[in-house]
């Protein structure tokens, strides 16, 4: 497209309210009333203004002149992805501009082929940009949701005055472990607890990275003035830790969450005794 300076397309874009009106009309069809005409009109009109300005710098949508336009389309995609629009619905709203431009070309003198082709390629390129940013926006929405889910599925719970625990369940990846550990350490501060328990009874296996994260969390807790115990290490995991040569050193480990709690309570000065009658 480098050869075309896009003068004709630009002229069409600027040919007045008719383009905008036709665009909105054409865009409304695939959206089937999921957006009010008012909102769609405002969106198209804002986008048109951005495109008019960008097209002063030619028709290459990857050029610097289009940075603002690409940003606008990315923002639009993000917004529509959140509101549950499909990628084709979003892109067709952009493609609808074609119809408006063709009609405008037709009107002012039959519309020569070059102009129509130029306009068509240009809108296609914009549609592609929209598609790409939509895909990215959706990924972002999904990862945000995954993070929210993570928050819900790995609660840090208070077991006793000064003792908090996080029971981990399922496969741990490095990102998840990191988030959970940060949350655990923050809970120590928020609740003024000197003991943390990471229970991995529900974790089938760990890799080096996850084992390292667990280890780093224990050391970080120590730097903050708290003690962190790891409980429920399965035989396979113990095997991994030994095979990988990870130094667990002087870290306190307990076979079960119950043992770990007892240990933590003892070190805060609480003695647990069975009442004479129940012996």
């Amino acid at each position: 497209m480098a050869q075309a300076d896009g003068g004709r397309v630009r002229a069409l874009l600027r040919s007045g309210d008719k383009v905008l009106r036709r665009w909105v009309e054409a865009a409304e069809v695939p959206l089937r009333g999921r957006l009010t005409t008012g909102e769609l009109g405002r969106t198209c009109s804002d986008l048109l203004a951005v495109l008019v300005e960008a097209s002063d710098g030619g028709l290459d949508v990857t050029s610097d002149a289009y940075a603002g336009a690409r940003g606008f389309l990315a923002e639009l995609s993000r917004d529509w992805a959140r509101r549950g629009f499909s990628p084709s619905e979003t892109a067709s709203a952009v493609f609808a501009l074609k119809e408006a431009l063709f009609a405008a070309a037709d009107e002012d003198g039959g519309g020569d082929l070059t102009t129509v082709l130029e306009a068509s390629r240009w809108v296609d390129a914009l549609g592609l940009v929209t598609f790409e940013s939509f895909a990215r926006a959706r990924e972002q929405v999904i990862s945000e949701q995954a993070e929210q889910l993570l928050e819900l599925t790995t609660p840090v719970v208070k077991l006793w005055e000064g003792v908090v625990a996080v029971p981990l369940i399922g496969t741990l990846d490095s990102a998840r472990t990191q988030i959970v550990m940060e949350k655990l350490l923050q809970t120590l501060v928020d609740t003024g607890s000197e003991h943390a328990i990471i229970d991995i009874t529900g974790v089938p296996a760990v890799d080096t990275e996850v084992a390292q994260h667990l280890l780093k969390t224990v050391v970080a807790a120590r730097l903050m003035g708290a003690e962190c115990t790891i409980s429920g290490i399965r035989p396979q995991i113990a095997q991994t830790i030994v095979t990988l040569g990870i130094e667990f050193g002087d870290i306190t480990t307990k076979s079960s969450l119950a043992d770990a709690l007892l240990h933590a309570m003892r070190s805060t000065g609480v003695e647990v005794v069975r009442r004479a009658g129940s012996r």
Partner: peptide, 11 residues
């Protein structure tokens, strides 16, 4: 010591 500081020191 703040958690973020502790994590960074360990790293």
């Amino acid at each position: 010591m703040r958690p973020a500081v502790a994590i960074t020191l360990v790293e």
